[in-house]
Design a protein around this nucleic acid. Structure first.
Lengths: 195, 195
DNA sequence: AGTCGATCCAACCAAGCAGTTGGCTAGAGG
DNA sequence: CCTCTAGCCAACTGCTTGGTTGGATCGACT
């Protein structure tokens, strides 16, 4: 395999990630991806099959990155929520990819569901450990809700802007929300622990 | 105006709502909307201008419905959160429309932002009243988070299915999550009140 | 140097798309 | 019964799109 094949693939994946995050599956343009990557369109079909399969590649690559970066830290689950929040603030494209996927597949099972299930199971296990309880449906509910509030601002930027006041992007505003999340999480965990 | 003009418009709006909720702005097909409505495509352009403007009509109609149906009830804010949850479970299309919009406009201001701002301001006012405090950035943070957890399951059905276990659609599973939300909300409100 | 396999790309294609047009129909006013 | 207006629709247009192809290029091995 000539040396630049891997590079070409990587350039395509990067360009595709940006394009898909911005426009979604239906809105993404194959020509634009090739243009951004500085590579001929035909390579996409040679390497990845078609547009939807390319999206899957992009997504699974991004998910790997996400689980690698956002780990369950030290001893404070509230800090985990804050990390998730920080991560989605810093890299909103990754959340956008997840949202496009969610809207695209709706209630149908997603490709590669098994692998994701195990990855979430690990997270749940860790979370329960830090709480000092066994994994249970209740703990799962809690974890799911906490991920929700961590992601909600990046999920609904318009609503956030309107409810939380104009400038949600400033460092100050982010710090404020982060503080709220930590506080909020501590409280809910305190009551979950004693249960 | 002949009698069936209003009906034709309504049929188009209904068909468009279904189509947009399912496929988003980019994925929606004008031909399909006309077909579903049993009306000629040209009517869409006569009545609504173009695809994007039609989407705006659909959305603002849906938002009116949402604010009309989901009111801040009696004296229990936790019940409000549960109502929001129930509403999005029953009518996931409306949330999907909001999500498509959020992804489409990203951080750019949305059309008609002012009207929505006042509608949210009212909600915030009511919410603060029920808490027995003045509206403040902190209360806004809380309200925003609560809306988030209420909507999160319908926002991320795949993730919900995986984390919460297979059958999230059954009455039983919905009741369980509803219970969790109420409990969760009560706790966070209790600590917000004393602050 | 010559052959071979893989990589690359400009040009191409058919289908699908949003949006338009020109003429038909029906009802209201005279 | 004629006219005028507004609603309606089948057929059309021109462009964009995902996907293909045939040949040029290049590196490796002999």
């Amino acid at each position: 395999m000539p040396p630049d094949t891997a590079r070409t693939r990587a350039k395509l994946l990067d360009a595709a990630r940006a394009e898909f995050a911005e426009h979604g599956i239906a809105g993404a343009r194959v020509d634009r991806i090739a243009l951004r990557a500085g590579v001929n369109k035909e390579r996409i079909y040679a390497y990845f099959g078609n547009k939807e399969q390319l999206f899957q590649h992009v997504l699974s690559e991004s998910l790997q990155e996400l689980t690698a970066v956002v780990t369950m830290p030290s001893d404070d689950p509230a800090e985990y929520v804050a990390q998730v929040y920080d991560f989605y603030c810093a890299r909103p494209e990754l959340l956008r990819l997840l949202l496009w996927e969610a809207l695209y597949y709706g209630n149908e099972p997603i490709p590669d569901e098994d692998r994701r299930a195990t990855s979430y199971a690990v997270k749940l296990q860790e979370f329960a450990e830090h709480l000092g309880v066994q994994p249970s449906p209740e703990v799962a509910q809690l974890l799911f809700s906490l991920i929700g509030i961590a992601a909600w601002q990046s999920t609904m930027p318009q609503m956030a802007r309107i409810i939380l006041g104009g400038e949600t992007d400033s460092e100050q505003a982010k710090a404020r929300r982060r503080e709220h999340l930590v506080e909020f999480t501590r409280q809910s965990i305190a009551s979950a622990k004693q249960a």
